[in-house]
Amino acid sequence: MAIFARNVPGMTEALRRRVVGVAGCGGLGSNAAVALVRAGVGELILADFDVVEESNLNRQAYERPDIGAEKVRALARHLRAINPAVRISEHVCRIVPGNVAELFGRADLLIEAFDQADAKKWLIESWCRAFPGKDIICGNGLSGCGRTEDLKVVQVGAHLWFCGDGGSELSLGLCSARVAIVANMQANLAIERLMRP
């Protein structure tokens, strides 16, 4: 497809058969999903219970007509508008420890894109217990603006990474650019991992 004509050599072929789970379709998940589809990932598994609100539009990959729509449905529409050939499994539901394996079991890799720290914790635990040999790439610390130099990728396990500044709290507010940088750090690392032979 011409959409991938400018891709990194070998990337399109490597990513076409890959499946990525996106747990949460907010600031991290929606922006990471867009990057993954633009790169040529063949299939995404999207899961989120929430609907698009106007307050999401400062940082999430939605538009005004999406307000009121389920995030998973709206994001899937946007992703298909980028690449109609992408396969998307849409799950409008709450992700809980008991359904992580069922929802994302087919994924080669999981993007953790939750909002709440306690949920991040049990998602990481659920994934690592169920799939100790599969990668999970998490976001951790993305609030505020500027301080790009503080954003980094930290590998803490054979299959566990964190992207972000590792320290900022929500009270700083959320800025579109900084959230998207961290989401794209997650996507960039995911692409790198998925391109391995």
């Binding site: 907010g26 600031g27 894109a113 909002d115 951790n140 610390g141 609030s143 930290v154 320290g167 709290e169």
Partner: peptide, 10 residues
């Protein structure tokens, strides 16, 4: 040993 403090925000 790596110990990562998880923060809200996503």
């Amino acid at each position: 040993v790596k110990a990562i403090h998880l923060h809200h925000g996503g």
